[in-house]
Every structure is written in C-alpha cells, then in structure tokens.
Simulated scan of single mutants.
Amino acid sequence: MPSTSFAFASNLPPEGPHAVLWDMDGTLIDTEPYWIAAEGELVAAHGGTWSSEQAHSLVGSALPDSARVLQAAGVDLSVRAIIDLLSAQVAAGIREQMPWRPGARELLTELHAAGVPQALVTMSERSIVSDLLALLPEGIFQASVTGEEVTRGKPHPEPYLRGLALLGELRGAQLDPARCIGLEDSAPGISSASSAGLHAVLIPNATDPGEGPWRKVESLTEVGFDQMKTWLAQVNA
C-alpha cells in the first residue's frame, strides 16, 4: 500500500493535482536496461570493465555526468560523443520495443481524461523523447524538458522548476509546486522533484533510494487520479 515517510508541510486543498510531472527513464518506460547495456558495451569496446554496481550508480544522473564517469572507466571519447552513442542505442531499443512501466499508460490516459496538465522531465535528450512522444496521443504531455535543455541536471531542482514554468506559461498563471506531483524512480530524480517543492512520489525500479522527503509506492498500478486527490487531502489534514 502507498506510504509516506514524513509529513508534508503544505496547506493543500482536498482536490486533485494542478499538474503531474513525469520522469521518463525507469518511471514511464523501463529503459534502464537499455542504458546499462549500452554503457557496458561502450566501456568494453575501449578495453575497460563495467560492473553492475557502476551501472546502477548512474541511474537517473544527467548524461554529461554519466559520460565523465565512463571516461574515467576508459572510454576515450568526448562527452558529446559518448552521449550521442548511448542515446542512439537506447533510441534504437525504444523503436524496436517500447518498454512501458506497469500502470504508466493507464495513469497517463486517466490524468489526461481528468484534464490534469502533464509534463515530461527527463535527463534523456530530445532525440529519444521525440520517439516516445510520437507513440502517444497528441496532447498527453503539454510540456517536456530534456537533459540538454537545462544547465544543471538532476538531482538539481532546475529540470522540474523548468517543467513547472513551462506549464505555468501555458496556463497563464504560475503553478504552486506543492500542489503538483512529481513521479520518479531514482535517487537523483526524486531529489530533484522534492527539492523543487513538488509532492514527490517515488516508484523504485532499478534502484531504491529508500526513505526521504517523498512518498513511496511500489507500482504505478496503485496510483490513480482519486489516489492523488486523497494524498493531497491527507497532507492538508
């Protein structure tokens, strides 16, 4: 059952979220195995070794940060070249098979039907995001933020703050982060959403950041619009 590890200090009305912001890799779609495989193959091609522990330590990180770790592991390429190679391999995997996380498509559709604005906030680049958006009904996401469009990636709050700002521009009024929900699966991601002031919700996948200033659920199959309304009512009690 959904649980929370701390009391959210917010005065929220007992109503649904004003917006929902989604992480992509590991939350919306299960691309982490694609990234891990691409990293391992790249390091091996340059004569190095890449452990499962090293791979999982990069989950949710900004791509330039990951590229520098791969350089330290022996990949003799520029940061830009590493990002391009990894992204191309992951994009090819997505085009072959879109690995949706359990409950993700259903929640997207339910929130859209309820009129809740949604944004995608990811450290992947626009080339990969475009492949995903092309497979969704038009208008599911009103805004999207990709890794190359921010100065500071996750765990910094900038990506989520940018997503909120874009949705606010479309709405014609600034959104209160505390009345919006951020869905994440990784330590950098959930820290980014939480520090941006969102009602952050962790759905662990490849890694489990554990307890912190966020709500934790086991699967998106447990989450729906009514559940989100209940969360916001609870924190207002």
Results as ranks from 00 to 15, higher is better:
Pro102Arg: 03
Arg95Cys: 02
Ser144Glu: 14
Leu77Lys: 08
Asp176Pro: 03
Ser61Val: 09
Gly93Gln: 08
Thr146Ser: 06
Val75Thr: 09
Ile140Cys: 05
Ala62Asp: 14
Leu86Met: 11
Ser127Gln: 11
Ser10Gln: 10
Ser130Ala: 14
Arg179Asp: 04
Leu136Ser: 13
Trp35Ile: 05
His156Val: 03
Ile140Phe: 02
Pro14Lys: 08
Val235Leu: 14
Leu166Ala: 03
Val116Gly: 00
Ala200Trp: 08
Gly147Met: 07
Val121Gly: 03
Leu198His: 02
Thr122Ser: 11
Asp25Asn: 15
Pro213Gly: 07
Gly60Thr: 09
Asp208Met: 06
Asp65Met: 13
Trp214Ser: 02
Ser10Met: 11
Ser186Glu: 14
Gly93Glu: 05
Val43Gln: 05
Gly197His: 11
Leu85Asn: 05
Val121Pro: 01
Lys154His: 10
Glu218Ala: 14
Leu135Gln: 15
Gly139Thr: 11
Asp84Met: 10
Ala92Glu: 12
Leu63Cys: 01
Gly182Trp: 02
Ala237Ser: 15
Arg162Lys: 13
Gln89Asn: 12
Gly16Thr: 00
Ala134Tyr: 04
Leu108Gln: 01
His112Phe: 00
Leu167Asp: 00
Leu63Ile: 03
Glu32Ala: 10
Arg101Met: 07
Phe6Ala: 14
Arg105Ala: 09
Ile83Lys: 05
Asp23Leu: 01
Gly16Arg: 00
Gly60Tyr: 13
Arg80Met: 07
Leu161Asp: 06
Tyr160Trp: 08
Gly147Gln: 10
Ala37Ile: 05
Ala7Ser: 15
Leu21Arg: 00
Ala38Leu: 05
Leu107Asp: 00
Glu106Tyr: 04
Ala45Gln: 09
Ala81Leu: 07
Arg101Pro: 02
Glu218Ser: 15
Glu184Ile: 03
Gly48Pro: 13
Val223Arg: 00
Met1Lys: 06
Val217Leu: 08
Thr4Ser: 14
Asp76Met: 07
Val20Ile: 04
Gly153Ser: 06
Ser144Ile: 03
Asp131Leu: 09
Asp23His: 02
Gly103Ser: 02
Leu120Met: 13
Gly189Ile: 03
Leu136Met: 14
Leu85Ile: 12
Gln234Phe: 09
Ala196Ile: 01
Phe225Ala: 03
Ala44Asn: 07
Gly224Trp: 08
Thr4Phe: 09
Gly103Gln: 03
Phe141Ser: 04
Gly212Ser: 14
Gly182Pro: 01
Pro14Thr: 02
Met228Val: 01
His56Asp: 12
Ala196Trp: 02
Val150Asp: 06
Ser194Val: 07
Ala165Phe: 07
Gly189Pro: 09
Leu77Thr: 05
Arg101Lys: 14
Ser5Glu: 14
Val20Asp: 00
Pro137Gly: 09
Thr27Pro: 00
Thr31His: 02
